[in-house]
């Protein structure tokens, strides 16, 4: 479970990016975090594993995010970064996949077995021994998700997972997200993907929660979306 209580954040000398953000993501629930550019989606995600220090309270699987407990929190959180090139820093996909589990105490053999299982579940075993710089953008995105899943996180955060994917890879990603039985918070502008994968949506604007409710209710509300620089998902037009 992921809980945000009165979370506020501003960059030094800047105006507030997040203001009194309060909502919770229940176990195994998939929540879409939507909003225009600069609404504070990525900032909010970064506060969860403590990459940014916000005021207020964030709790991940019962552990409060604070300096002393960062290692425990990061063990529970899997963060799929916006740019897979930043996520994949080892030479091969398999090296990247075992990086996290081995850092958290698994032996290399155990980590490889875990990685193999994830690759098989995602149907991308062919990428196992490929070099990161030799795989396509779509494959890299799937591999980035695999590196996070290999850590068996309780909560997954995804920042614009479908950006720069072609339709086929985007569909594969949507199917993968739907298959995963994890607590997820997905920040995206791709409202069609959110409609396909999430049961609930939180709409942010100017760092504030504007709406929080059923995916169908919010994503069908043309007036609400347009008032906050968004538009209806293409499939609903």
């Amino acid at each position: 479970m992921l809980i945000f209580e009165n979370v506020c954040f501003s960059y030094p000398g800047g105006s507030p990016v997040l203001e009194e953000v309060t909502f919770a993501v229940r176990n195994a629930e998939k929540v879409g975090l939507i909003g225009a550019n600069g609404a504070g989606k990525s900032t909010l995600l970064k506060c969860v594993p403590g990459l940014l220090t916000a005021s207020g309270k964030i709790t991940v699987s019962g552990i409060e995010v604070c300096r002393e407990k960062l290692a425990d929190v990061r063990r529970k959180v899997g963060y799929v970064l916006q740019d897979p090139d930043n996520q994949m820093f080892m030479p091969k996909v398999i090296d990247d996949m075992i990086f996290g589990p081995v850092n958290y105490g698994l032996s290399r053999e155990e980590a490889e077995a875990q990685a193999d299982k994830v690759l098989e579940d995602l149907g991308i075993s062919r990428l196992r021994d490929r070099y990161n710089h030799r795989i396509s953008g779509g494959e890299k995105r799937m591999a980035a998700i695999a590196t996070v899943l290999a850590m068996e996180p309780d909560v997954m955060l995804m920042d614009e997972p479908s950006s720069s994917l072609d339709p086929k890879n985007r569909r594969a990603l949507i199917n993968t997200i739907k298959k995963l039985d994890k607590t997820m918070l997905i920040a995206s502008h791709d409202l069609d993907m959110i409609l396909d994968t999430c049961s609930r949506v939180v709409l942010l604007d100017g760092g504030k929660v504007i709406a929080d409710g059923e995916c169908g209710d919010i994503l069908h509300d043309r007036e609400l979306l347009e008032a906050h620089c968004l538009e209806l998902p293409l499939s609903l037009l």
Partner: peptide, 13 residues
């Protein structure tokens, strides 16, 4: 990205 996956300066992997 390295820190998020448990990197603390040691090379366990």
């Amino acid at each position: 990205a390295m820190m998020l996956r448990g990197f603390s300066g040691e090379f366990h992997y």
